[in-house]
Write a protein that binds this DNA or RNA. Structure first.
Ligand code: MN
Ligand code: MN
Ligand code: ZN
Ligand code: ZN
Lengths: 133, 133
DNA sequence: ACACTTATTTAGAATCATTATAAACTACGA
DNA sequence: TCGTAGTTTATAATGATTCTAAATAAGTGT
């Protein structure tokens, strides 16, 4: 039941009814989660009686991603996956069930990148562990 | 100048003119490389006078992937990226130039995955290091 | 070489996630 | 309350990928 009005304003985003509703679906949860745009659209339908245009869902997700409230997960899928966990973290990807699972940082030993590229700095280091039966 | 006829036959793939040409473009190289379907199509045009249908390029890449001669790289892009380096290895991804760079195994320290999922086994462990200016 | 079967190629259509458009609506400061 | 810039929305456009079904080629047995 967080109030997102000020948070949005402080980010330079107007707190519209649609954005507030999407915030509730995305961030008023015990745990972080992974989703596609279509899954998010469904969650919005389930949680609210209000219809939000698909274009607005895309717009909002992209706006939130730009502000750092969401991030994309690099995975080969027909649809783009997003993550409400924006901390640096790793994933299991279950190939049979096509499901993503968060790894805690303590689940993966420290990773040392020994090579450097001139003029570039490391923004993130992410591990994807593929699982099969 | 490898002859791919037997290799294809041994994989249960008929050595057609199109597949042999695509093999030459993909595998007759000093170094392995990354490509999208469109980039591959262009390379084929450049290297041969023969026109290969786009559908055949897709079919062939998927057939080769299934046989383990190519693999997909998990990256967020409009187009799917493939890799002729099918060994387990890691990548730099230059966010500014949108370019993939292979990391040698010696460039990354050993990675220990401490968590296990019941009934699942690890198929691969891949690191994606994002770079920015 | 010939006939037969099955795999492959191909042009074009279909699919579908995503993005663009442009008009209506809304938040918000003056 | 006005004016403006930001936002929403239905709808169209885009473009990568997949599907279709007819033509062609490869493999097999004779
Ligand atoms: Mn894809
Ligand atoms: Mn995408
Ligand atoms: Zn995650
Ligand atoms: Zn690679």
């Amino acid at each position: 039941m967080t109030n997102y009005t000020e948070k949005l304003r402080n980010s330079g985003l107007r707190p519209t009814k649609q954005r507030l509703q999407i915030c509730e679906v995305l961030f008023d949860t015990e745990k972080t989660f992974h989703f596609t745009i279509n899954e998010l659209e469904q969650k919005i339908k389930d949680k609210t009686n209000n219809k939000i245009s698909l274009a607005t869902v895309y717009n909002t997700v992209h706006a939130f991603e730009k502000k750092g409230y969401l991030k994309q997960i690099p995975i080969n899928s027909d649809q783009t996956y997003f993550d409400t966990n924006v901390t640096d973290h790793h994933h299991f990807y279950d190939l049979n069930e096509e499901k993503l699972i968060d790894l805690e940082n303590s689940d993966v030993g420290p990773i040392s990148i020994k090579r450097k590229i001139n003029g570039k700095k490391i923004k993130s280091v992410e591990v994807l562990v593929k699982l099969e039966d």
